[in-house]
Structures are given as structure tokens and as C-alpha cells.
Computed example of a mutant assay.
Amino acid sequence: MLEKKWYIHPVIAVGVFINVFVLVLAIAFAHDQAALWRLLVEDGIVEWMQFLCFVFLSGLLAFLAVEQWQREPKINLQLLAFVGLSALVGLAAMEEVSWFQRVLHIIPPEFFLQNNRQGETNLHNLALGKSSLHKAVLLKIIAVVGITHNVILPLLAKKRPAIRDFVEKFGLYLPPLSASLIYIAVVALSHLLVDHPRKGELGEVFGAVHYLVTVVAAYFFGVNYGKPPVFQNNADGRRISTLFCMMLMFLLLIGWMLSAGAGAGAYIASHPGFGAE
């Protein structure tokens, strides 16, 4: 089903819409620091959206692992990829909200109070010299892997289809190049047009949405993917993709509501002068 184009499939199109919407929102809030902080603050709209996307993606990858085992009950590269990625994305989701430390009002263990640059119960903000593990190491790895997976390999695969076959042998996929270029563009624009100390959160939520929709499009509907997808019947695929698009919009709404109830509202209330300058 490689002939399918991303822009005629609603799943990826809705993901692109959400990312562009969040970018426009951030740019529109450029002169309203209170609104911009509500968007980007810890436990704000953007951070909860990341968490929801990662949790959803982790669950879907676990579902794919079960489907793979039912199709072929043996340990192979495809099964290991689904299980490993599900665990990795689930870890990222919990790290994003510091394992619910702030939501449940849990005091971090002494180790994290002494070694975490933000005093949070997570690994990615552990001190590493004058920086953190996230900034010193993880962001660089994410950048290299992201450019390779979204741009370099898809470009090479257009001329050499064997590259796509090689990637898919390991249970992985290549996102559609057009969708990837839009993803890279909104990340770049967020860095150029948004002036805020936490603007990097925008790039992270763009990545969470991008990978959620391209994983679903590839493995579930066969978009830009050479192996049989979960839904091979066009009628079933159309119905499920419509429901999934509705779920994406619902995740955005829930992220907005969670930010008001669990994090951003409380932060702003306790920091009345945070955006005065």
C-alpha cells in the first residue's frame, strides 16, 4: 500500500492540522506572556498533550505486539520492535509528567532533590555537569535520529526502495517525506518565531503528534508501508481512521482541560508576577 499519499489520509492530515494550530496559537500569544506561559509551563497544555500522545502511542504499539504474536507466535524482530518501542514511549510519557509527582503532590526522594536540576522525580533532568542529561545528551540524540528517520532515509528510499525494505525488516517504518518536512518546518518556525525560555516544549509536542499519526497511518492503514497493515479492508480502515481523527481532537481538548485543573492554573495562581516583565 505504498502508493497511498499522506495528504489523502485523514489521520496524518489531522496530525498536521493540530501541529500547525499549536504553532499558530504560540505565535498569537507572543505578546501575551500570561497566555504563552499557560501554553508552555510545566503541566501546561503542551506538556499534557505530549503525555497523552505518548501514552496513546505506547498502548497502540503494545496492541501491535499482541497482534503480531497472534499472527506469528514467535519472537522475531517485528515483535521485539513493537515491545521495545512501546516500553520506550511509555517511559517517555511518565518522564514527561515526572511520574505524576506534581499531580499527586509527592515530595521527590532525596536523590532527585540533590541531583535533578529541577528537583523533579525524573531521569532526563538529572544534572550532567553544568547542564542536564536532557540538554547535554538526549536532545542531540533525538535530533540526529529525527533527521535521519524523517529526512535522510526517506529521501534515499525514494531512489533505492531496498532501503525501505531494510528498515521494515527490523520492524520499523519510514514516515512519508512530505509529512516529515512539515514537521521539521513547524519545529524550525517555533524556534524562530516564539521567544520564550520553554519554547523547546513546542518541538517536543510536534514530535509526539507526528510520530503518533505516522505510526498509526503506517502500521494500521499501510500508508507508506510495505507490509500488510492491521486494517486491510478499505471500509474498515475508513471507519477506524475517522474515529481516530476524532480521538486526536479529543486528546487536544483533554490536554487543555488537564492543564487548567492540574498544573498551569495552579502555577499561575502561585506566581502572580511571573510574566510581568
Rank of each mutant, 00 (worst) to 15 (best):
T214H: 02
A217Q: 05
I141S: 06
E42K: 01
L128H: 01
D236W: 15
F206L: 06
L88H: 10
A269C: 10
H124T: 02
F231L: 08
E277Q: 15
L113A: 13
M246N: 14
A266M: 13
V55H: 05
N122Q: 07
L133D: 01
L2E: 13
L64A: 05
G263E: 00
V186S: 02
I254K: 11
V230G: 02
I75E: 14
L156D: 08
A127K: 06
E168C: 07
L155D: 03
I240D: 02
L172W: 04
A264M: 02
I147C: 10
A264P: 00
G207A: 14
W6C: 02
H149P: 08
I141F: 10
F206Y: 07
A65D: 01
N150W: 07
F274Y: 15
E96Q: 09
S270Q: 14
P109A: 11
L138T: 05
L64T: 03
L60W: 03
G237L: 04
L133T: 03
S132G: 07
L52E: 04
L57V: 07
L39F: 08
A136E: 11
Q78L: 15
V103R: 00
V22Q: 03
F220C: 03
F221W: 06
V151R: 08
M257T: 15
S86I: 07
E120H: 01
R238G: 11
I45D: 05
V20I: 15
H210L: 11
L153T: 03
W6T: 01
C245G: 05
W69D: 08
L25W: 11
A87S: 13
D32H: 13
L212M: 08
L189Y: 04
G222A: 10
A65P: 04
L251A: 04
E204M: 01
R239I: 14
A34N: 14
F17M: 12
S98L: 07
H31K: 15
H134M: 15
F221H: 03
Y211A: 01
A269E: 12
G44R: 00
N150D: 10
W256N: 12
I268Q: 09
Q114Y: 12
D43L: 14
K169T: 13
V145L: 14
P176C: 04
T148N: 11
